[in-house]
C-alpha cells in the first residue's frame, strides 16, 4: 500500500538518508528504532514532504509520486493521504480541542461543519477526551494534548499515520496513556509508521521493526527477531546500550 523506493536525502554535504526502500502493507505497524541522528525522523518527514528528498519515489494509495519532480499539487495530494503525530504535539494554539480536530476536515476536506463535528466528537471519544472538547491546548497536560493530536490525525481518515517520537516530550507518568491510545489505534487496523525509543512498546505493538543506522536500513524483521535474536552487530550493540542505560 505504501512503497518507498530509492529515497535519498541530504542536508548540504551530509547524507542523511541513503537509498531507503520500504514496503508497508495495509494495517501494518512498522517501527523505526536506532541511534539518534540516523535519519528515522527525517525519513518520516520525507514521507509527507516536510523534508524534500533529493530523489526517489513513493507510492501511496495507488498513486506514485516522484520526489525529484513533485509538483505543489502532488505535494498537497500526498499530504492529504497521511497524517502526522509530532513529538511536540503541535496542536493549533488558537483553536479549541474540538476545532483542532475539526479544522482540517472543513478547510481541506470541505466537509460540512455538522459532519466534521460529529466525526471529531467520535474521535475525541475514542481517545477519551470528549469532555475536553471546549478546552484550549495549553489547558491540557502533555499526554492529553498528544491524545488530541492523535484524534486530529484519525479524523482525516488518512491511509497512514506517522508517529514521530510521540512520547519523547512527555513526563514519564504521562507516557502510558499515550502508548495505550496508540495501541488502540494500531488495534483498529490503521496503518502506522512509528519512530520511538520505547523499546518494549515497540516490541509489543509492531508487526515489523526496522533498525536504522547512519541513514541506512541496517536490519529489519519481526520484533522477536530484532529484539531477541538479532544477528546484526550494530543492532545488538544499540539494544545493549539502550537496555543498560534504561534499566
Amino acid at each position: 500500500m505504501l512503497n518507498i523506493e530509492h529515497l535519498d536525502l541530504s542536508f548540504g554535504d551530509s547524507k542523511v538518508l541513503d537509498d531507503i526502500n520500504l514496503e508497508v502493507h495495509k494495517g501494518e505497524v512498522i517501527t523505526f528504532i536506532g541511534p539518534s541522528g540516523t535519519g528515522k525522523t527525517s525519513l518520516l518527514r520525507c514521507i509527507n514532504l516536510l523534508e524534500k528528498p533529493d530523489g526517489g519515489r513513493i507510492t501511496l494509495g495507488g498513486d506514485t509520486y516522484d520526489y525529484g519532480s513533485i509538483t505543489k499539487k502532488e505535494t498537497l495530494d500526498l499530504r492529504r493521504k497521511t497524517a502526522m503525530v509530532f513529538q511536540q504535539y503541535n496542536l493549533f494554539k488558537n483553536k479549541t480541542v474540538l476545532e483542532n480536530v475539526m479544522d482540517a476536515q472543513i478547510v481541506v476536506q470541505k466537509k460540512s461543519k455538522a459532519a466534521a463535528r460529529d466525526k471529531s466528537m467520535a474521535e475525541l471519544a475514542r481517545v477519551g477526551l470528549e469532555a475536553k472538547a471546549d478546552a484550549y491546548p495549553h489547558q491540557l497536560s502533555g499526554g492529553q494534548q498528544q491524545r488530541v493530536s492523535i484524534a486530529r490525525a484519525l479524523a482525516v481518515e488518512p491511509e497512514v499515520i506517522l508517529f514521530d517520537e510521540p512520547t519523547s516530550a512527555l513526563d514519564p507518568e504521562l507516557v502510558g496513556e499515550v502508548l495505550k491510545t496508540i495501541g488502540e489505534v494500531a488495534g483498529s487496523g490503521m496503518t502506522i509508521i512509528l519512530v520511538t525509543h520505547e523499546m518494549s512498546f515497540a516490541e509489543d505493538i509492531s508487526d515489523r521493526v526496522v533498525f536504522m543506522d547512519r541513514g541506512k536500513v541496517a536490519e529489519e524483521g519481526p520484533p522477536q527477531q530484532i529484539f531477541r535474536h538479532s544477528n546484526h552487530a550494530r543492532t545488538q550493540q544499540f539494544l545493549r546500550k539502550f537496555y543498560t542505560a534504561s534499566h
Binding site: R79, Q88, N90, L91, A104
Partner: peptide, 22 residues
C-alpha cells in the same frame, strides 16, 4: 512556532489556508 506551520502542512493545508486559519 515552526510546529504550527508543520502541523497545518502535514494535514495538506495550502499555504493560504494555513496562513488564514492558523
Amino acid at each position: 512556532e515552526k510546529g504550527q506551520h508543520e502541523a497545518a502542512e502535514s494535514l495538506g493545508y495550502t499555504p493560504f489556508q494555513k496562513m488564514k486559519t492558523v
